[in-house]
Design a binder for these strands. Sequence first.
DNA 1: TTATTCTTCCAAAGCGCTTTGAAACAATGT
DNA 2: ACATTGTTTCAAAGCGCTTTGGAAGAATAA
Lengths: 350, 350
Amino acid sequence: MNLKNLSDVLGLSQTTVSRALNGYPEVSELTRRRVIEAAQRYGYRPNPHATRLATGRAMAIGHVIPMSSQNSVMNPIFADFAAGANETYARHGYEMTLSIVRDEEVENKYRSMAETGSVDGIIASSPMISDPRIEVLNRIGLPFLVHGRSSATGYEYNWLDINNFRAFRVATEFLIHSGHRRIALLNGPEQLDFAFRRRRGYLDALRRNGVGHDPGLVRSSEMTEPFGHESVIELMRLEEPPTAFLTASILTAIGARRALHDLNILLGTEVSLVTHDDSLDYFGNSGTEPVFTSVRSSIRAAGRRSAQILLDIILGQREPPVTELWEAELVIGKSTGPGPHAGWSAGTGQ
Amino acid sequence: MNLKNLSDVLGLSQTTVSRALNGYPEVSELTRRRVIEAAQRYGYRPNPHATRLATGRAMAIGHVIPMSSQNSVMNPIFADFAAGANETYARHGYEMTLSIVRDEEVENKYRSMAETGSVDGIIASSPMISDPRIEVLNRIGLPFLVHGRSSATGYEYNWLDINNFRAFRVATEFLIHSGHRRIALLNGPEQLDFAFRRRRGYLDALRRNGVGHDPGLVRSSEMTEPFGHESVIELMRLEEPPTAFLTASILTAIGARRALHDLNILLGTEVSLVTHDDSLDYFGNSGTEPVFTSVRSSIRAAGRRSAQILLDIILGQREPPVTELWEAELVIGKSTGPGPHAGWSAGTGQ
DNA sequence: TTATTCTTCCAAAGCGCTTTGAAACAATGT
DNA sequence: ACATTGTTTCAAAGCGCTTTGGAAGAATAA
């Protein structure tokens, strides 16, 4: 059943039927009702390809996620982000096309999306400190939003990010105030902007509190479970091992926990750990007293909101650049406790 | 630059240009080369919406993943599966549209995808033992492939699945042969077909080996980390606690490990654990001696292959029904060791 | 030479929708 | 009565591609 059939059945022109269905005012309420009712009865569904061709709107948003050769550790993150975004799209009748593209081909993908008009907007994820993609997107002219920021980029663009600097400063200060001085940072890949900001937050906290910085305590890598494990094993072998760890992902935290277990070191007592937590529900780091003390921000909520902002821009309801900075929440769990210097700045006595 | 422009520039008809570009034989090699060269120089890209309207082909495959109210624990799994599928699609010029839909709306989504022709095929995931979706898909007439199977469905359909029955029988027998008799199963939700099969594999192994079945040792739930934790805590409180665990997911295994740690029980020595492993690389359960003993099968490879099969069917290169059953691989890691009855069936002495 | 078959190309119809510009009609004012 | 305005509907022209049914030209056969 297509428009022509339907209008024939109704004895109306395609124009009128189309307008009635799309809520245009120049159609009497009576005929509109007739049309809608008939459309329902005959199960009429407009052919989206025809609509797209006629309107030039794709009714789709492209998520292109770069897959580095180092492999897709970020998948679970992207997945939850996408799940959130999808909720928004569904509510607005948009579709989501997901492309997982090798780093070198991302730019091409953007180009072809723009030139063929296969999407109305693009969401880019986890930018690097200096990320050429943003310039490309800017030149292309498609509306886009970046999940995260790119520090070294001069352009203005739409982004939604969490305050990674603050989050890691807060986390670090929490550890310092708990009496820790040797704090290790197991960071994500530091060409990625968020990891870079996290390190700066960490360093800032050390400096502000007069805690010396030992570069040997900072490591950076894909945020896998094994990375957490190896790092802790190695760092605990130091002459002066850390008494606390900051990890960039719950996966890394889990690996760290495994290592501490292997070494027979009690987490939350002998050693403390604060992790960033994307609030992935299957890790279940919630409840009244979560397992890991964390700085937490829901990646799924970020997806929902990012999609909404982008749609608003596409529909002309907001003027770019739109930017939104979220604060992560410090949540005290069971993985932290007083450090060797407890009592100095806080008042726990000893 | 569209077809008309391009053909004007070349002094050829749209017909000829279109044919030259699409590899039809009724065009001389000389003109074909001219056309291709010009297309490249002017950066011509066909408008996909127009192509779709004209051909009726959507050049897209729909992945619709049901989101139960119980929340999307499966996300990381789907994500890796999708990543694999995407590799295949990209190679064939197809797009992937991802819809995350509430359970009740899945059927509608299928319907609308078929009626509007927005995709050429559908991939359905993690079916239940008796899953109405399969009948719906069958009636709809779109090519589809199920990742997993639905035991109680009479229809023939295309599927790719791993041999869950065998995998869990093998895993269970491995534990039995290692001297375990009290083996707990922390299964996924048992309305899901794969979970149901796993339980049967487990029961079959017990029966075959004359090991009594204690229903109190079997639990079933979303495969989260906390589920593993709680279950182990509770089960270890039994008068006669299990000496081994089978878990349906590495997440659950991680939770189990945490619980054992809390209880001060040594994993791999005092208690053994075998888990199913989807081979998600960020969990890093690989290497020479993986952390967890597991029955392993790459979910990403499954995604790649599933997409390939579906495309083959769509392109008429294979006749449905196509089915493919993969065997999972038993990989010995550090989470298992001899049980209290070691020496009975194997020959470890004592 | 004329008839016949390939080879190479084309004009035009069609895919199913939206949208422009205009017509038909009713309602209002003078 | 006629002009004017407002309301409701329509025919037809796109959107950019594919594909059908020829036609023109070249090559071969009689």
